[in-house]
């Protein structure tokens, strides 16, 4: 069927289309625009509106004001919370990316060699991913429990080693939280990396082999450059995901001891649901949105640009 015949059969063709024979995209886009607008855009607009008020969950009409921005952004604890968020996010993203890549390489390599256990490895990692954050936090809380009957410390004692203050030492607790988040999120990175590895043209490896490249050289000069877009997209996704993580932390440490593990998302949650300050929570949500967008743009700037025709 010719393109002309096809366009003549299309039900909706805009005024311009009658001359150019290009169908109008709007009828097809409208459902998506409506759904996005209703379920995504409207709440975001509401968050912006609340941020310019002094609304609380306790009732009252609330008034439009700029003072909430000034109050929230000058809070003395905010600096520490942003720093804690940075450590948590950076640790989690780097850990998940590296482990996810390593596991994907192992899985692909094992599949190529038809080794036993590949599916078991892949499934085991995916189980951690499907465990809800709250449940994951509780599981790790049991493992990190510092009581004499605590999971990991019992193993350490069994091995003749000193127990670790996994959750009560302010210098250690953040790394315990990062570890639990890496455990949970690695599977996602593994799936993305696995798909990207499978998409690499095998002829590139054949050419590298003909050129005498060893395994390390193949990894650094073929695999990683080919994975670059996937790695960057994955990092955008897991950074946003990690910035929004609070369920696993709330059940593992509650943000404590003190504020040692209180990340921005948890702080926002606490401000709204414990301090009942809806307006302040909205300002913090906007701050999170700006940080997420900023980081996404930074990553995106490293993505390979399509060459203009």
């Amino acid at each position: 069927m010719s393109a002309r015949a096809m366009s003549s059969r299309l039900p909706f063709v805009g005024a311009a289309g009658r001359h150019n024979r290009v169908p109008s995209p709007y009828p097809w886009l409208m459902p998506v625009i409506l759904v996005m607008g209703l379920f995504y855009l409207y709440p975001v607009i509401d968050v912006f509106r609340y941020a310019f008020t002094d609304l609380t969950l306790l009732g009252g009409e609330g008034h439009y004001t700029l003072s909430t921005f000034a109050n929230v952004l000058t809070r003395p604890e905010l600096q520490q919370i942003v720093w804690v968020t940075f450590i948590f996010t950076a640790g989690s993203v780097i850990g998940q990316q590296l482990l996810g890549l390593a596991m994907a390489l192992v899985v692909v390599r094992s599949e190529n060699r038809h080794l036993f256990g590949t599916t078991i490895l892949r499934t085991t990692a995916l189980i951690a991913w499907v465990v809800p954050g709250i449940a994951g936090g509780i599981i790790w809380k049991m493992l990190f429990n510092e009581a004499p009957f605590g999971g990991l410390n019992s193993l350490l004692r069994f091995a003749g080693m000193a127990p670790v203050q996994w959750l009560s030492d302010p210098d250690v607790v953040m790394w315990s939280v990062v570890l639990s988040n890496i455990w949970r999120g690695t599977a996602f990175s593994m799936v993305v990396m696995y798909a990207a590895l499978k998409a690499i043209d095998p002829s590139l490896y054949e050419a590298a082999e003909v050129d005498g490249a060893n395994g390390r050289q193949r990894l650094f000069f073929v695999t990683l450059p080919q994975l670059r877009p996937a790695i960057l997209v994955n990092m955008i996704l897991i950074t946003i995901q990690t910035l929004n993580t609070f369920d696993a932390i709330i059940s593992l440490t509650g943000g404590g001891p003190g504020r040692a593990t209180e990340v921005l998302s948890l702080y926002t949650f606490n401000v709204v649901f414990r301090n009942y300050d809806l307006a302040a929570g909205s300002v913090l949500s906007i701050l999170m949105l700006i940080i997420s967008l900023g980081l996404a743009l930074v990553y995106a700037s490293f993505l390979p640009k399509e060459e203009k025709a």
Partner: peptide, 10 residues
């Protein structure tokens, strides 16, 4: 929050 900071010596 205060108790966490004090009891951990932070």
């Amino acid at each position: 929050i205060m108790m966490g900071k004090v009891l951990t010596g932070a």
